[in-house]
Design a protein around this nucleic acid. Structure first.
Lengths: 356, 356
DNA sequence: TCGTATGATGAAAACGTTTTAAATGGACGA
DNA sequence: TCGTCCATTTAAAACGTTTTCATCATACGA
């Protein structure tokens, strides 16, 4: 019935130049117009239920899937979420953990996750410019913010949806997920004090990043409250190679008044600290203690058990994904776009909440 | 001069509905036709040098960049390379190392790297089907092949360009980069024997993967040559959590004739082995030795220095990238599509070569 | 002077969608 | 009987490229 008026296609098969079925193929088979098919698949209310079902069935039968390039060209939306991965994230699969979380958040949506590895050119403001200009994605996720992060400024100015892992101190609010590194460091330091340690040392993040400041602040608050001696280990940080940290620990121990308690912002650096101390003939839990941030199962191999405080990077990724989707959908409600994860609370019971 | 005949655009600015300059914008400014502009930017020889330069200059001035969606729709090419990342690769940034290499290979080309994280659904043949059907990419890279890998079969059947990290035993040749795990294991075992160890144990990859078989084969060859006692530690493998390996080592030590030399396929598992042995009061280099495969700087933190054999994952990624580009360009010459990396040779001097 | 080769440019169609605006055909109230 | 409204469906344009096929000077050999 209802034969097409003009330019009837040869057969009913996937009569496409590239071999893949298109809307046109379905239109030919059903005798409907391309418009109707498009609408039916989009579940438009103006198309009768019967037609919608019929079209859906045919689409299923012939294995139709929409051409993303065409959709993208027409709508201007990419259906892509980009993650900016940086060199530092090589260590211990930070990237993969976070990405697993993001992927989880994107599951069931039409969004794809693409990773823009920034391994090559350190100037990552360029990468962001590139993404905006080439409209490579509908939204962006990246990490390790600075207090006055230029990337955040650029994206904000352009109204490009994004979520950061980490806070800034910029006036214009933006979407973020952050771990409460102040509380982490405060708690870690308190634990060291509770273990009877009296000369505490901190290995924090690289200077310049917001989270490094938070860690330092938490550490300082705790040592000052307790009135105990402290130091922040210079020349090294979280990202330093294990060997460098190990050497630094050894050198420090050769000087006077070496620390007997270490707050470590990461696992590798805890590991390196232990190694350095072992070099000096000292035993963890006996002559000194460590409290470290844990993001993987690495320290599970270490003995004796290192005292850790957990940061769930996969959950972080999942939150960032969800928040970004909200932002892309148009939300500007800061309360549902910002999330500060506490070290204590497990993922499930975590509630959204604003932060400074 | 040369005013456009019909439908002259309002101004000379980015008179686009979406605000971004297009070929049309350049055409209006230069007074040329869209066709000519397209050709000029593609550096077509039929366009005069003068025009080419003029067009390029204008494009630069107004910040033109081609719309990938439109190019993609028209040409059918996506300019995208996809990497299938799997859960196991979380450990120690395998994924990120490899991706850094791939990104390096893609640098300067028009290709983008996108990562399809397969964290969620273990059935990753689906992911591949999805990529093929939705033509998400022009080429694919993935790892951990099985001898009769169904993914390889599917891709081969569809003529979809891909490179695997790892070999298969399929009849139809395909592009791959692989590390010579036989030689790695053989060499590692020989080193243990040279250190005077006489009861050797192997921690290999998960059963079913091609590389696990290669490791086992290398190990067996070496122990048989030397005629020394050996065992393959059951119940655990490379991917086992550190705690599980540690426990397994402890249990094994409680039994009779414990091994005094360990060949470990990975760093975390070496670390866990050391921990387990330390639990039993044994010292590395004294009562036992380890030779492990090294893919990161993790073991640099460990003391005493663990004997390792290096696998350069970034180089692997770079090779895979280059080979995939060749394959996409149409090469079917197996000699330039297959590469077996030897443990010994540094990256620079590595030459392409066929493999079994 | 004419036809033709040559070198440069252009018009129009196509890729597969979505969207705007219009058409169709009853049903219904007057 | 006629106009109006509603529910469906459709035609056509558009998104920004690339590509096929034409056009148009100009120069050139005869």
């Amino acid at each position: 019935m209802a034969a097409r008026s003009k330019s009837v296609r040869s057969g009913n098969g996937p009569a496409n130049s590239r071999g893949k079925p298109t809307l046109r193929t379905i239109a030919d088979i059903t005798g409907l117009a391309v418009t109707t098919v498009s609408r039916a698949l989009a579940n438009a209310p103006q198309i009768s239920i019967d037609t919608r079902n019929r079209v859906r069935q045919v689409a299923l039968d012939i294995g139709y899937s929409p051409d993303r390039a065409a959709q993208r060209l027409k709508t201007g939306r990419t259906n892509v979420i980009a993650v900016l991965l940086e060199p530092h994230e090589e260590i211990l699969g930070y990237g993969t953990s976070v990405m697993a979380g993001i992927a989880k958040a994107l599951q069931g949506t039409s969004y794809h996750l693409i990773v823009m590895p920034n391994f090559l050119n350190a100037a990552n403001i360029d990468a962001i410019n590139y993404i905006i200009r080439n409209s490579m994605a509908d939204g962006l996720i990246f990490s390790r913010t600075e207090p006055l992060d230029p990337r955040v400024m650029l994206l904000s100015e352009n109204g490009f949806p994004f979520v950061t892992h980490g806070r800034t101190e910029l006036a214009t609010a933006h979407a973020f997920v952050d771990y409460d590194n102040f509380t982490f460091a405060y708690e870690a330091t308190r634990r060291l004090i509770a273990k009877g340690r009296r000369k505490l040392a901190l290995i924090s993040g690289p200077a310049g990043y917001t989270f490094a400041g938070h860690i330092q602040h938490g550490f300082m608050t705790a040592v000052r409250e307790a009135g105990c001696a402290y130091e922040i280990l210079s020349d090294i940080d979280l990202d330093s190679p294990a060997g460098a940290i190990r050497d630094r620990i050894r050198r420090r121990y050769a000087e006077k008044d070496p620390p007997d308690g270490f707050a470590c912002g990461g696992e590798v650096c805890a590991l390196a600290t232990i190694t350095g101390m072992t070099d000096c003939g000292l035993t963890l839990g006996l002559e000194y203690d460590i409290v470290a941030k844990q993001t993987s199962q690495l320290l599970g191999a270490i003995q004796p058990r290192v005292d850790t405080i957990y940061e769930d990077l996969t959950a972080t990724g999942e939150h960032m994904g969800r928040i970004l989707l909200r932002r892309i959908a148009g939300s500007t409600d800061i309360n549902e776009l910002q999330l500060l994860l506490s070290p204590e609370l497990p993922f499930e019971t975590q509630a959204a909440g604003a932060a400074s």
